[in-house]
Amino acid sequence: MEPKAIFDLLTAHLGEGAAEYRENDIESWACVSVARIADACRFLRDTEGLEFGQLMCLSGIDWDGYDENGKGKSVAILGYEADGTPETSDRVADGELGVAYHLYSHTCDHKFTLRLRFPRDKATVPTVSDIWSTARWHEREAWDLMGIRFEGHPDPRRILLSEDWVGHPLRKDYQMPDQWLNVPLRGQPYANNPFAPADDAPAGDDTPAEG
């Protein structure tokens, strides 16, 4: 089934205004309101003739600096100068966040894409982990790296980073920590290395280790 036909069925279920269709050369998608996403997903999975049994991918998106088609001004990646001082930028990230759901039906052999957009300070989305259980890890990853909270997730922990990590690194306004548990994470010239031995430190000897 073509994406447009799938979208027509979806709109008929959700009602007017709950979803918009976006035509695209590569892949068309439906932009759904955040409150109706679980309803839309359950409809797409359970309706005969649609039967989207697989959630191929669930991705978090930071739209800051981009328009909806992924084009627009580039976003400055904050890094570090050659001498180790951090690059600074006055720009405050104000773009929207988003989630993309890529669906596939094994029985009907068609694909469909859903997208959400929401403000940065309201990054809370209903979970779809009760519809496709594979979403459990995908949603944990989106929470871990993008800071999108999924309401109703049974196990909302970080999945990749350590439990005590601060921040969500794939957000455009993420600031890299200097160190973590006293271990420096910032690559610096060796001269700036606080762990480097002093210039007048005695050279190490080559005696074998004790023991």
Partner: peptide
């Protein structure tokens, strides 16, 4: 340089 998660 940009690996926020890697011990240097």
């Amino acid at each position: 340089k940009y690996g926020y998660h890697v011990v240097k």
